[in-house]
């Protein structure tokens, strides 16, 4: 479930990155890399688990699925938070800098 949610997030952010020049300027590429990197890593984890469990891997308990879904959404929130912090630090549009400048003057 975590893998599915992360791949979904990776696909959505990639589509946003591809379709909008503004999104590319706002460093959504970093967000794409984060989601794709984690998806690839969890894919290896899933394959290892499938080798160990066999077909049982595809029939998880409801509580495990719920917990994994909760983890998946938490992972998305963490990635978005990291991206926002990075965006504010890099400040490609100069919004933070101008806000600070206006406060001082």
């Amino acid at each position: 479930m975590t893998l599915l949610i992360t791949i979904l997030a990776a696909v959505v952010t990639s589509c946003i990155w591809y379709s909008s020049a503004r999104a590319r300027r706002l460093k959504t590429g970093v967000l794409c890399s984060m989601f794709w990197g984690a998806s690839l890593m969890w894919l290896v984890d899933a394959v290892a688990e499938y080798i160990e469990l066999g077909a049982a891997y595809f029939t998880p308990a409801a509580q495990d699925m719920l917990n994994d879904a909760f983890l998946g959404f938490s992972v998305i929130v963490l990635a978005l938070t990291v991206w926002v912090v990075l965006l504010f630090v890099k400040d490609p549009d100069g919004v933070v800098r101008s806000a600070l400048h206006n406060q001082r003057s």
Binding site: V30, A38, M41, V75
Partner: peptide, 16 residues
């Protein structure tokens, strides 16, 4: 970016 991003999210999963 791929490695750091993936590792960060995986570390969070391990913490979880």
């Amino acid at each position: 970016h791929l490695l750091w991003g993936g590792s960060l999210l995986l570390a969070f999963e391990h913490f979880w």
